[in-house]
């Protein structure tokens, strides 16, 4: 499910050109470039976004999307941190088999089932009777716990990338395992995984687009709601796609900047 981490243009601009040309062909086939279509464009744009302040539906949807993404990110990072420390500590000699087994199972189950199914189960099974609860909180929980399983693996990779000598040096000074983790290993690991955490955040942003399935008017659902009002098949959803794309591109630029900044702090 989450191979959809955004990784820039990357693999071959050639493919991009082919896909682009194909899309243009489709648009041309559907009469997109006829004069009639273009004279109609402004009127439909007005219908979809200006009339009755319909753009506010998109704005509110965007707010909901950002709210859910932020909340889920916080839960995801916390859960991921705890899970990864449990798993690394198990390898590092702090043997609590039950905890480790639980963490392993958690990661297996949440990564092994679609986020969509998890969201539906949280809403219609686990919180079925809690009808007063704001559905957005259920979505935050579902997305956050799901993300936690992925973040756990990110953190684990980050922790394991730290030279074992760092732990030894800390322990040789009398620091406990916990203190060594907290003051020596985790700060270095965190620094290494910040870019990957941001990518997880970006993936989450797009993933929340399924929140409409449990009745949340997120950005995607807002587009559909406008569709329902105007019976318009393309403009609202294309607008939604553009908004997602802009956010993802801006965030990706930020990650790039962040990566550069992080690597500048270090000298080889």
């Amino acid at each position: 499910m989450k191979s959809k981490r955004y990784d820039g243009a990357g693999r071959g601009d050639f493919l991009l050109w082919i896909v682009g040309a194909f899309l243009l062909y489709l648009l041309w086939e559907s009469g997109f470039f006829t004069a009639a279509a273009w004279s109609d464009f402004n009127r439909r744009f007005y219908q979809n976004f200006i009339k009755d302040n319909r753009y506010m539906m998109l704005v509110d949807g965007l707010k909901s999307t950002i709210f859910m993404t932020s909340g889920a990110t916080i839960i995801g990072v916390l859960v991921g941190l705890i899970l990864s420390v449990i798993r690394v500590a198990y390898k590092g000699g702090i043997h609590i088999p039950i905890l480790n087994k639980l963490a392993e199972t958690y990661i297996t189950v949440l990564r092994g089932t679609p986020a969509m199914v998890q969201l539906l189960i949280w809403n219609f099974t686990i919180f079925a009777s809690a009808r007063d609860l704001n559905t957005q909180y259920i979505a935050i929980l579902a997305f956050g716990l799901n993300s936690g399983a992925y973040v756990a693996e990110i953190f684990r990779g980050g922790i394991e990338s730290i030279d074992a000598g760092q732990m030894e040096a800390a322990r040789s000074l009398g620091l406990t395992y916990g203190s060594s983790m907290r003051y020596v290993i985790l700060p270095q690991a965190l620094r290494n995984v910040v870019p990957m955490l941001f990518n997880e955040f970006i993936a989450l942003l797009k993933e929340t687009s399924i929140a409409g399935y449990i009745g949340i008017d997120d950005l995607t659902r807002a587009g559909q709601n406008i569709q329902a009002l105007t019976l318009e098949h393309s403009q609202p959803l294309v607008m939604v796609a553009i908004i997602y794309l802009i956010m993802v591109m801006v965030l990706s630029k930020l990650v790039k900047k962040l990566e550069q900044w992080l690597s500048r702090g270090r000298r080889g």
Partner: peptide, 26 residues
């Protein structure tokens, strides 16, 4: 271990801490 210092082949200074913090952390 408080009373047994160890010096490693590869130093293992804590790269995210200043020299001062490397010495005072423990």
């Amino acid at each position: 271990r408080r009373h047994m210092g160890m010096v490693f082949q590869h130093f293992y200074l804590f790269p995210h801490l200043t020299v001062r913090k490397n010495l005072t952390l423990a």
